[in-house]
């Protein structure tokens, strides 16, 4: 088991000087995951915050092989790389083992890239898909996505007198991926770096496709103080809004159970995108959210306890 010291002392693949927003935890997610690989990595990166901010022409922040792709095709290109790599190995043209990683935002994963992701998982390519999930199209100005939570204000589902913001629940992307019967799927955050690191280790060791959804609080469009990214990341876990769990060969294991579940208000408080929910007429939205979170947590506990296959 690695220590935090060991993880952070590894050479980071993403060089300083990239243009990620101040307070963004995407670099932590990327560096931690790649640090968990004991083999060289090849990165396939969908259009999104990470791609735009790490490759401002003519510069690049990447110190590892990296390829930018269309918005909808990170998993498809990763599948292509893996297939070519296997063919080269078979013919003896390559000897080294590599880990292939696809990075996408939630727009490029839950929405436009979902078809390619599902296809690659079903075919069984050995690669790790990582979604850095900031719960919306943050690179293009905060439009809603399939990951945007219930009740959030975005530019395309604006909250107002007639609307509470988004009225749908987000997709359960980890269970959707696990339902492809892949060997490993997990949910993680940047603030629990060791947990994220260990999950990446397991993902690389899996014999087949693996998937990690990492929550990425967005200081710009969740609208909170840039110093509070890790605090919100932690609150998401402590409120059970974003449980840390993994699905190994279809079996659920919860990695962290808060001793006392904090009320969801504590996560919502101070985020501009949820400000409207604190008006008296919108209290019911917070109550509904709390009910949903508690029900989901209970369901997750049951899945863990019963060890029923997802």
């Amino acid at each position: 088991m690695a220590t935090l010291q060991e993880i952070v002392s590894k050479q980071v693949p993403l060089a300083p000087g990239h243009r990620m927003c101040s307070g963004c935890s995407i670099p932590v997610i990327v560096n931690t995951i790649i640090a968990a690989s004991d083999k060289p990595v090849i990165i396939a990166n969908a259009t999104g915050c990470l791609e735009v901010a790490s490759t401002i022409y003519p510069f690049t922040a990447w110190k590892v092989p990296w390829m930018h792709l269309t918005f909808e095709n990170a998993a498809a290109v990763a599948a292509g790389i893996e297939t070519a790599y296997k063919a080269f190995k078979k013919r003896g043209k390559m000897k080294d083992d590599v880990n292939i990683i696809a990075f996408g935002g939630d727009g490029g994963t839950y929405d436009i890239g979902f078809q390619a992701l599902s296809g690659a998982l079903e075919r069984g390519h050995k690669f790790l898909y990582v979604v850095y999930d900031n719960e919306g199209y943050m690179n293009t100005g905060n439009q809603r996505s399939g990951a945007t939570p219930f009740g959030a204000d975005t530019t395309t589902v604006p909250a107002g007198t007639m609307s509470i913001g988004k009225t749908q629940w987000r997709k359960n992307i980890v269970e959707i991926c696990a339902a492809h019967r892949i060997p490993y799927a997990a949910q993680a955050t940047a603030h629990n770096t060791l947990d994220l690191f260990n999950k990446a280790k397991k993902a690389f060791a899996a014999d087949g496709p693996s998937f990690i959804a990492a929550l990425q609080p967005c200081t710009t469009n969740w609208k909170y103080d840039t110093a509070l990214t890790m605090a919100y990341s932690k609150l998401a876990v402590e409120t059970n809004f974003w449980p840390l769990y993994e699905v190994e060969n279809g079996k659920v294991h919860i990695n962290y159970k808060p001793k006392e579940r904090k009320p969801i208000e504590e996560f919502l408080k101070g985020q501009g995108r949820f400000r409207h929910l604190f008006k008296p007429e919108n209290r019911h939205v917070i109550e509904e959210m709390q009910k949903m979170i508690d029900e989901e947590w209970e369901r997750l506990l049951k899945l863990e306890e019963s060890q029923v296959q997802i």
Binding site: D111, G146, T155, P158, M162
Partner: peptide
């Protein structure tokens, strides 16, 4: 969503519901 025209759908998202018309963001 796509840059450089996000102001257009955002404007529709505000105005269309007011008029009882349809705004829908696709996947």
């Amino acid at each position: 969503p796509i840059t450089p025209q996000n102001e257009t759908p955002e404007y529709f998202s505000r105005r269309m519901p007011e008029l009882g018309r349809v705004f829908l963001q696709a996947e």
